[in-house]
Design a protein around this nucleic acid. Sequence first.
DNA 1: GTGAAAGCGCTAACAT
DNA 2: ATGTTAGCGCTTTCAC
Lengths: 341, 341
Amino acid sequence: MIRAKHTTIKDVAEQAGVSIQTVSRVINNRPDVSAETRQRIQEIIDQIGFQPFANARGLASKRTHTLGLVTADFSDFWFSQVVTGAEKEAHERSFYFMLGSASSTPEDEPKFIRLLTQRHVEGVLFIHASFADESEHLNRLKESGIPVVTVGHYLPESGLAMIDVDNVGGGRKATEYLLGLGHTRIAMLTGPSGWKSARNRTEGYQQALQAAGAPANLNLITEGTWLHKSGYLGMKSLLEKRMPFTAVFAHNDRIARGAISALHEARLRVPEDISIIGYDDIPEAEFSDPPLTTIRQPMEEIGRAATRLLIQMIDDREAAPKQVLFDTELIVRSSCMRLAE
Amino acid sequence: MIRAKHTTIKDVAEQAGVSIQTVSRVINNRPDVSAETRQRIQEIIDQIGFQPFANARGLASKRTHTLGLVTADFSDFWFSQVVTGAEKEAHERSFYFMLGSASSTPEDEPKFIRLLTQRHVEGVLFIHASFADESEHLNRLKESGIPVVTVGHYLPESGLAMIDVDNVGGGRKATEYLLGLGHTRIAMLTGPSGWKSARNRTEGYQQALQAAGAPANLNLITEGTWLHKSGYLGMKSLLEKRMPFTAVFAHNDRIARGAISALHEARLRVPEDISIIGYDDIPEAEFSDPPLTTIRQPMEEIGRAATRLLIQMIDDREAAPKQVLFDTELIVRSSCMRLAE
DNA sequence: GTGAAAGCGCTAACAT
DNA sequence: ATGTTAGCGCTTTCAC
């Protein structure tokens, strides 16, 4: 196997007639080089297309500028948005992400830990990893002293840094909106209760109902997964129960859209017969039938903020893990209407 | 900034009372170590949790076991599936992916090239990168001698390795299905013509029509993006033209679903008034209203195959770039029906 | 089967 | 402002 010969700092030094160290200073933008030499060296670098080898720098400086990215589900829209933000922020700060295990099956854990330690990642970003599955990962990492920031995955006990959306507030906001339209029998299709975000949205829902003196009816709550299919099946089972309700809070837009399919199948109209509100504001929400009223989360900004915090923790190991909650925004479209008297 | 001290090969060697080199042999599974010494060393490795530092190995061996992953759009379902497969395959072969630029804006190119060369990635996987934007990237990489495999992005001129779905066949399959149901006025909502996959689906569509003696009517073809919104707007403009058609081939399921929204708004029923077939078989397709007939692509397997090919090209630089086409599968649900006489 | 020496490409620390 | 020396943690090469 023949490998292309890369140009090294030595080549540059020889051509410029200076020592390796001086070239190193130029690469690293150190102040103690004369403008003249700096320029001469820079020209040679540009000309022969020299790129310092990250591995060698990492070995010598004990910094790898590498971050680990771990997630439970790539296909999740929420995830993809967060990653986009995270990636941009990292690049701007000259950090890069290594892909951790996508499938977080328990057997993968040793491999996963090995990846992170062998590569000496300087920090790890957990995006949308589920609750139970991952906590052992997290603890092991924490013990190893690597800074960890979690997104959409808050365990208050763990004391880990986290960036998330205010899901309690979001759940409250959604429910209050429906209450404001006169609805009191409000059903809910939740995400898996293993997810903190789902539990929090449920909590917000209950807070709002309680404050309005319209206590939650457990028969109107159905737990499921985050998928479209789950909304469809959940709504079907809700309808079979024959408990009256006039509005639904779905824990994400995919669930909401699945529920609408089931509603249509049952010849019920949205919003005339049933009002429905989602969560996320996925791109399709605007073009659903009907356009979906929903709770928007600032996902890309969350990714950026998480990465920023992670790098900050790397730079200052004493920095206490912070927990930041972003606010949600109610996006009113036409899947909800005022309850007729 | 205090960094945790990592255990090194030296620590292991000292504890085992052997030389560094012998430990190295154990790590790399070389045959020339006595079973006894090997076991003793292995026990110490396990006990103190030693992990060889990938950077140092890379520096010494000139192998980084790192691959670059570049894409135009994270939020694409197709992409996420392919990545999942690619990631699994890579892990099984002890390779890892570094995230390249997510946003493939032209300004990012220098940064992007720098990432890949500074990290000495051994190969690069381009997933679903668009045609025009990226070709300069590709050529630069090719010149640098780094193996490149593209997925969903075939430029025959470039001679690059690629794994893709047989989009011509898929387009033909979709169109033939509609023809078989008696439709002859078949409209089409395409993806961007800058994408090879879109052009190929169009080609398959034209082939099928021609073979059936029902030449394509350009007025029935509308180009758009891959997004839901585009299907919605495309169908609206199609309807405004008042050119009669009885069926639609949408270049992906999101477009199809957008089109269905527009159709519903226009008080047209699917499939009673208009039949529609999509492409991809996204999870939501099954639960659309109506459930969407579509063309399925084996995405995860494509990711695996692409990674396998990439690693093969790394191992054997003489291996000619291969081009592999996967077959598609027609998934019949209920968004199409036989044309009434 | 095992070890010693050299060096991968770079930075850190200390010279001058 | 620049050079010298040492060494990061590992593999390679060659010796025994």
